[in-house]
Design a protein around this nucleic acid. Structure first.
Lengths: 168, 168
DNA sequence: CCTGGTTGCTTCGAGCTCGAAGCACGTAGG
DNA sequence: CCTACGTGCTTCGAGCTCGAAGCAACCAGG
């Protein structure tokens, strides 16, 4: 116990814990709202939001998984639930019979439109309230750089499969 | 679709997504390492690390739950696993028969001592590599403020129970 | 001393997550 | 054309998570 945390000084350690806690608390708060407002889990919201955000409202499963961090099997499960509720449809791609094209339905769009304002408001209140413009700029810059760095850094003991950047 | 995200401008939205993704990727990487190095989940690691960090190596379940974000039932479950593996012991508090005092065993200390260096190194590499001293200071300040703010902001539709800041 | 409310933890059921294995389609090399 | 391998998704089993409900101990007030 001479060196409390080799490799990280105490400021880094504090930032690491703060990051963990902040994102946890944020997710909890947001998840709770989505569930009560639209009976959606955070994952489901992410899927729908992403689809709504994209030009044709369509995306292949794989592309969807690249944006959301969840596993493929988890995505299949959640897509099944959304399909059952009529918020998305799934159909085989004409180009590639293996691929499944996911499309938001109007009901899906409506639901997102309905919950998004409050969702955004919550995030603003929890995350951005205690920040000024300078903070936001700094945070954006740092996180952006870290994100790039993480994407570029391959997992330690990774399977060479799946090159992260667009399958084909 | 005139206003893409009411309540959040695009810079805020970007920061929000970046935060989500960064902490997700970080947790994945760290979790994977802990599992392969010490057969520990991230939660288990957090529990042990917290105990090791604390003077007597003892903590009540509640105090433990205040630091780790997981639910009480989840904590009970994980504590059960750690107990079975001999990494912690659980005993009723002499002061309050309801409370359970969790104590790290030597085996638990050894395990943490064994995995901590690599854990820290990973975090450093992924999170702090692309930051300079100024970034770190800024990030710490911002996250610290946000964390306080979140702790102080009660969940929207919350039960008044559990005052968040140290039970008694 | 009861009696009602609070607190600390555990048990329980339902649901979600993941990786491994499986299946079907696509593609390259002979 | 046929074979072998790569890719996209789903199924499956095991394990983890959560909140609700349950139980025991503490803490008033009368």
């Amino acid at each position: 116990m001479t060196d409390p945390t080799p490799g990280l000084n105490s400021e880094q350690l504090g930032a690491y814990f703060a990051l963990t806690e902040v994102s946890s608390l944020l997710q909890y708060a947001v998840d709770e709202h989505l569930r009560s407002a639209g009976d959606l889990s955070y994952v489901q919201f992410q899927i729908l939001a992403r689809l709504v955000h994209v030009p044709g409202g369509k995306l292949r499963m794989t592309d969807l998984a690249d944006g959301v961090v969840y596993s493929r099997s988890g995505l299949t499960y959640q897509a099944g639930l959304l399909d059952k509720r009529g918020l998305i449809t799934r159909s085989p791609s004409p180009d590639d019979e293996r691929s499944v094209i996911v499309t938001v339905t109007d009901a899906g769009r409506d639901l997102i439109a309905r919950v998004l304002p409050e969702h955004a408001e919550r995030v603003r209140q929890l995350l951005f309230e205690p920040m000024n413009g300078q903070d936001l700029a700094a945070l954006s810059a740092i996180l952006g750089r870290v994100r790039e760095h993480m994407r570029a850094t391959p997992p330690r003991s990774a399977k060479p499969r799946a090159a992260r950047g667009r399958g084909n």
